[in-house]
Design a protein around this nucleic acid. Structure first.
Length: 581
RNA sequence: GGCCCCGUAGCUCAGGGGAUAGAGCGACCGCCUCCUAAGCGGUAGGUCACAGGUUCGAAUCCUGUCGGGGCCGCCA
């Protein structure tokens, strides 16, 4: 199904034959032999570096190897031309029938075209978002949510068994703050003046929570000390916040498989047992940390703490797991949580975190490495900041000034599809500019519309064909005489589609969903290009008046492009459109 | 002081061992009696931050320097 691997197999087979004939020494390692699209399409359809890679180990001139290999490859009916170029590249040109056959392959496979077995069913846990349950999701969370979701889809498409997971930070001091903030709103609901002290959450979103508390508890919590209500209010408010967050995620089209709770780790011995496991490995000790160099915290004092010997697993310093008052640090439940993920049998863990967690990565990796005996790799994807713009002007966010941009604001203004696509057009480790005006602009400047427009044009062709009475269901198109398409511009579109399975694997290996977005842009560009050629050359239009067979072959090509665009958009979580409005 | 990320065209960014380094925007020149011109074709624009190293081959890998951002015990 992947033409590049098909041709690579042919190359390897030919190299094997050369070895058998004594043209190459036995025992050569062919793993570095690659078959790729050439940088410049004028060079051919595919290129292999085989001769250059094998020149040194075989002690032969690369061009001589390439010449001999060219003869072998040219004997295959799929190869119409094999020529040596540059330092020893072997450029291949493939027969039109190969590309015509590819169109049929795409139509037969439908949305599964490009699906890969690369992952061999490995169980991968992708943890993402994990926003604190203390308020609505803001724009900073959106990018992490979209990235994690698309990465999960990409890995699943590439043959992994993926679990999407959200870790609810409902066990720390911040949920106590939430409870106190909600309690003030509860008092407010009773007509009292709320005291939103410094450090409490001032947001309006807690007002309905206060009212709901009144409904549930009446006035029974009024004028009582914290010890009477804190636990109940905390649980109540946290639940409400999570309901809100789930709604936010749903509006973005993100669906988690598992929600894990930090609170559930406390009082169940899970933290203690995870720490004990590390202790048994000799990785927990009582000690004193060196003060950080450079900028010293003002209230620094030496103090003995319970430490995790993360330096034994690649970290720079050991890390405290207990505060001086004996409580766990934030790190401790995280140890237990990652231990839990390891215990659940995942083959790989991926954490999607904000870039401000960069200093946290090494200790997390150290924990997972220690607790899995090095069996489970942890990959941490850091998501850089989103810089908001409006009318080309930077848009500063501030909770205090009330210019706090929530996920809901973004989705309401830009729409889920646009938001998702735009947020995926950048590598996760590069900052992203998000301009509210630009993302809604309907031009080539905006990649979302460019790709959607291409898909809409395919739909338009199908509608036109239907009006002309030409049957265009997928089965009919797949059975069409595809040898009728042969113009180089048409074949160029098919060639771009041939790259899709390869791209899926590259993107999955690199855990880089942005590659999908860039690929879709290129594919759309090929389609637009072909479309416009039809303006000058009517023989290149998809619907050919009075010629059903030719029309069907050309429509099959367009439809196949639409199928690939849909498949790519599905990974990004974006719905393709049938027409532009 | 240490750790992580980044530095590619005027701007925003792809490419991350392979050939003459690409796209969009901006600039300039063209293309609608014709399937959606929300599009297409072309021209101009580069010391891939800098210096060493590895390699048949480096924008890409390694080391260092410079510049930008992030992080660095009792917050999560």
């Amino acid at each position: 199904m992947n033409l590049f691997s098909d041709i690579r197999a042919l190359v390897i087979e030919s190299l094997g034959a050369m070895t058998a004939e004594g043209a190459l020494p036995a025992g050569l390692d062919f793993t570095a032999v690659a078959v790729e699209p050439p940088r410049d399409a004028a060079h051919g359809d595919m290129a292999t570096n085989a001769a250059m890679v094998l020149a040194k180990p075989s002690g032969q001139n690369p061009r001589a190897i390439a010449e001999a290999l060219a003869v072998k490859l040219a004997a295959d009916p799929r190869v119409t031309l094999a020529e040596v170029a540059g330092p020893g590249f072997l450029n291949l040109r493939l027969a039109p029938s190969v590309w015509q056959g590819l169109v049929r392959t795409v139509l037969d496979a439908g949305k599964d075209y490009g699906r890969s077995t690369l992952g061999r069913g490995a169980r991968v846990n992708v943890e993402f978002v994990s926003a604190n349950p203390t308020g609505p999701m803001h724009v900073g969370h959106v990018r992490g949510a979209v990235f994690g979701d698309a990465l999960a889809s990409l890995l699943a498409f590439a043959g992994h068994d993926v679990t999407r997971e959200y870790y609810i930070n409902d066990g720390g001091a911040q949920v106590d703050v939430l409870a106190r903030s909600a309690y003030e709103r509860y008092r407010e609901a009773h007509g009292l003046e709320p005291e939103i002290r410094e450090g409490l959450y001032p947001g309006d979103y807690l007002i309905p929570v206060g009212e709901a508390l009144k409904e549930k508890y009446g006035d029974s919590l009024l004028d009582k000390g914290e010890q009477y209500w804190l636990a109940d209010v905390r649980e109540f408010a946290t639940e409400r916040m999570m309901a809100m967050i789930r709604e936010d995620l749903a509006s973005l089209g993100v669906k988690m498989d598992v929600y894990s709770s930090e609170k559930a780790l406390y009082g169940t011995g899970k933290i203690e047992s995870a720490i004990q496991t590390l202790r048994d490995m000799g990785l927990i000790y009582e000690g004193v940390l060196e003060p950080p160099k450079g900028k010293l915290p003002e209230d620094w004092e030496e103090r003995e703490q319970t430490l995790f010997r993360s330096t034994a697993h690649g970290d720079d310093v050991d890390r405290p797991v207990q505060k001086s008052d004996g409580n766990w640090t934030y790190f401790a439940p995280d140890i237990a949580y990652h231990y839990d993920k390891v215990t659940r049998g995942f083959d790989q863990l991926i954490d999607v975190l904000g870039a401000d967690h960069g200093g946290y990565v090494k200790r997390l990796k150290a924990v997972v490495s220690a607790l899995s005996n090095g069996r489970v790799p942890l990959e941490v994807k850091l998501i850089q900041l989103v810089k908001l713009f409006k009318n080309g002007e930077p848009f500063k966010m501030s909770k205090r000034a009330g210019t706090f941009v929530t996920l809901r604001d973004v989705v309401e203004q830009a729409g889920a599809d646009v938001t998702r696509f735009v947020m995926l057009t950048r590598k996760n480790d590069a900052p992203l500019d998000f301009d509210f005006d630009k993302v809604l602009e309907q031009s080539k400047d905006n990649p979302v519309f460019y790709v959607q427009y291409a898909h809409a044009r395919v739909s338009s062709v199908l509608r036109k064909a239907a009006e002309a009475g030409i049957p265009t269901d997928d089965a009919t198109l797949a059975a069409a005489d595809l040898s009728l398409i042969g113009h180089e511009v048409e074949l160029a579109l098919a060639k771009k589609m041939a790259e899709w399975p390869r791209l899926v694997e590259i993107a999955a290996k690199g855990q880089e969903p942005h590659r999908v977005a860039f690929y879709l842009y290129e594919l759309a560009s090929e389609l637009h290009s072909l479309w416009n050629r039809g303006n000058d050359d009517t023989s290149l239009r998809f619907v050919q008046e009075g010629n059903v067979a030719v029309s069907q072959s050309k429509i099959a090509l367009a439809r196949a492009a639409g199928v690939v665009i849909s498949a790519g958009l599905a990974i990004l979580g974006v719905k393709p459109v049938e027409e532009m409005r």
